[in-house]
Design a protein around this nucleic acid. Structure first.
Ligand SMILES: [Mn+2]
Ligand SMILES: [Mn+2]
Ligand SMILES: [Zn+2]
Ligand SMILES: [Zn+2]
Lengths: 156, 156
DNA sequence: TCCTTAATGGAAATGATTTTCATTTATAAT
DNA sequence: ATTATAAATGAAAATCATTTCCATTAAGGA
């Protein structure tokens, strides 16, 4: 069983660097996000963390997620089911950029990385053109495909 | 001053075709959407319509927009300002497909059509590949670029 | 350890959207 | 045109994710 680094997990320095304190709640939230490949709602996180941290409130989840989104450590998505969903932007190994496939019926989400290279290349060109033409400083993009997943499609 | 077609506007047949009745509220909502190039919230529409239709309630706006979104006559967007925004998918002339540039600071939205051809071409290829691989029947896509508009960017 | 101030949680507030339900009205049949 | 029927409606209440308030706690530099 390997030790935790004496100085804490990889995000400690990021939080500290932005002047934020390391707290039990923040640690639990980041740890849980890092160990999940799902698209989690604030309440998902709240419920998951509760057994170990019964003293961390839902308000703290929301506040922490706001901070993490602003620091670009976490993405916030709207998949159309009425609640925000969160996902770590990268792991210790670095970013693993992907886009989404959303079932409009059951709200299943698929992360995909196929075609990502071509997509990202085109996106970069597009960004450059749009930046120049409209004077925007583009920092981010969102690509989602909507449709019906196999199990929601009418059975033949 | 030109006449309205005796059979009504172009969307009458679409509504009727789906078994919906033509009502004052629906007519007003569609007319207003058709005459606007903005990205309107339910309340925007409510306020805009009120002078002519003081008897159309906000509830009807929401209900009508739901129908129109389901009929794919209207797109519903989330630009991150806490309310849904709506836009007609096409005019009498047909679709004018476009994507969005969103200022994360002031929530200004820019419709752009530059690069649309290349984007759409790539998207179609991507859709085909994803459909096959993940068994999704893709009907729609969403592309948004986020950043800071010229007036929100720190003045040099 | 002590001190300053960020961080917290629980309750209350907020605000967009939805639901309820009694009433109205579009429209097809007469 | 009249009538019958189910769809559509508005107003008020309910919902529910997220935010705000505020008194209390605790992180971390000195
Ligand atoms: Mn994802
Ligand atoms: Mn638009
Ligand atoms: Zn599905
Ligand atoms: Zn702006």
């Amino acid at each position: 069983m390997r030790h935790q680094n004496h100085f804490g997990s990889w995000w400690h320095s990021k939080l500290r660097g932005c002047g934020y304190r390391i707290t039990e709640g923040r640690e639990a939230i980041l740890n849980f996000l890092a160990g999940s490949d799902k698209h989690l709602s604030a309440e998902d996180i709240y419920m998951a963390i509760r057994p170990n941290c019964p003293n961390v409130g839902l308000t703290t989840i929301y506040r922490t997620l706001d901070i993490l989104v602003n620091m670009a450590l976490v993405y916030r998505f709207d998949f159309g089911d009425g609640r925000a969903r969160y996902e770590l932007t990268e792991g210790p190994k670095g970013a693993h950029h992907h886009h989404h496939l959303v079932c409009t019926e059951c709200h299943k989400i698929v992360d995909y990385t196929d075609f990502i290279n071509e997509e990202v290349k085109l996106l970069h060109e597009t960004e450059k053109g749009l930046s120049k033409k409209y004077g925007f400083k583009i920092t981010n993009h969102l690509i989602q495909f909507y449709g019906m997943c196999a199990s929601c499609s009418p059975k033949k």
